[in-house]
Amino acid sequence: MGPMQVPAHFEYERATSVDHALALLAKWGSEARVVAGGHSLIPMMKLRLARPEALVDINDLEELAYVRLDGDVLAVGAMTRHADLLASPLVGEHYPIFHDAERVIADPVVRNRGTVGGSLCQADPSEDLSAAFAAVDAAAVVRGPDGVRRVPVREFHTGPYETVVAPGELLVEVVVPVRPGGGSAYEKVERRVGDWAVAAAGAAVWLAGDTIADAGIGLTAVGAAHFHAPAAEEFLRGSAATDSVLVEAGRIAAERCEPVADQRGPADYKKHLAGELTVRALRRAVARARGVA
């Protein structure tokens, strides 16, 4: 047998409820990591890029696996598997951006295991749902020993692999208000099926007639702070939903991001993609808002 990649030693704790998970996280403090699908964390542990003393397994928390409409708010439980987000008709009806994104996240077998909460908390700078949730201006619901707090997804990530979730806290839900007149879409370029993005863009628009009443743009893998393109959004608000306006928004989004060259491509190519994919996502989002796509 060849060399196995296995994680370093750690203690394993399995949570049986959210309260139990919080108690376990309080017990282990900053030495603990929460494990959900594990498809980012376990590979990182094999490579010693992560070396927690304890893993708190929340896979049994069925109470956090749901997609539902609470009044006019789409609520997605943190333990919702990628496959279940992709299969959800509610998501398809109100925010097709998530179906677009899920179709290009990893592969179907990985999507059976990976979770929405895990994706956000892993905070990989090339992660897709982070950009999609930033585009629609979702909020993360975080529980801790002192209660519940809500953090806009646009403030959730504090850097590569870093979030506002403190030791002892648990992301339990992501919520997005559903507003009339909206359309959304996600566009990604990858080197091969199932890969991380070379670049990707998500867009959400809300139309009032032919005017863009509100817009959201999320970017991933291109060095956009908080996966977000606020200047392009600002430009779109109150503008006519014409193609030249969408193209200009793409230009602004590309101008403000700062991709770095890596094995997935040079920086100027990624910058070009950031603009082009923003435009394509906006076009599709506008068409969906008009009910023609």
């Binding site: 990649q5 394993y12 399995r14 494990v35 594990g38 498809h39 376990i42 590979p43 893993l55 397994d57 896979n59 592969d107 179907p108 077998v109 990985v110 059976n112 295991r113 199932g194």
Partner: peptide, 25 residues
């Protein structure tokens, strides 16, 4: 690394890549 898929088994009736699942899970 959960890329190749030769280790796929069912866990509770769903295919998963067993190189990225801990036995204790």
């Amino acid at each position: 690394t959960s890329n190749c898929g030769v280790c796929v088994v069912w866990l509770d009736g769903t295919p998963v890549k067993s190189c990225t699942v801990l036995a204790v899970m």
